[in-house]
């Protein structure tokens, strides 16, 4: 079982720590969406938040911890205009020490060439603002803003 979210009622911020596996990512998303600050967003903005957080956490689970589940923490802080998100893990650094470009695969009419992946960073970049990645002291720190209006 995952620990209950550590929620600070006055500031409405949420801090959640867990071991990243596909099922833990799913469970953590459900917890985050059911709690403040995401709970108060419009349905559209909540949908956007779920897409972004799912892509960030799935990428991390797959690439930062390729050998098995590792620790990750998510902090969500309500700020003017949206929610500031900080995601920290202690796994492998991003290749080249920077975020993937997130270039969308070309739309292909030829069936065999149609893309089955490469969508994740495009979605993250399209749906966030102020996306920042820092590798420091063996940790990956990804921060971004989820806009209130989705």
């Amino acid at each position: 079982m995952l620990p209950a979210p550590d929620q600070d009622g006055t500031a409405g911020r949420l801090h959640l720590a867990f071991l990243a596996s596909p099922l833990a990512v799913r469970d953590s998303l459900a917890r985050m969406l059911a709690a403040q600050p995401l709970r108060s967003l419009s349905p559209d903005a909540r949908g956007t938040a779920e897409i972004v957080l799912a892509e960030v956490l799935n990428n991390l689970e797959e690439h930062a911890y390729p050998d098995g589940p590792g620790p990750v923490s998510v902090t969500l802080i309500p700020v003017a205009g949206g929610i500031h998100c900080l995601v920290v893990d202690h796994g492998l650094a991003m290749p080249g020490g920077k975020l993937p470009e997130g270039k969308l695969p070309a739309v292909e009419t030829r069936l065999e060439r149609q893309p089955e992946g490469g969508f994740g960073w495009h979605l993250i970049r399209r749906l966030t603002r102020d996306l920042t990645y820092v590798r420091t002291g063996g940790s990956n720190r990804l921060s971004f803003l989820l806009a209130q209006d989705g």
């Binding site: 949908g47 779920e50 897409i51 799912a54 892509e55 799935n58 069936l111 065999e112 149609q114 893309p115 089955e116 992946g117 969508f119 994740g120 979605l123």
Partner: peptide, 20 residues
């Protein structure tokens, strides 16, 4: 209610499995 990029990739893969 929710589909991530893995789910999207799987739907595209099914389309391809069906063939031309």
């Amino acid at each position: 209610q929710f589909l991530d990029s893995s789910g999207l990739g799987a739907i595209v893969a099914v389309k391809k499995l069906l063939g031309p």
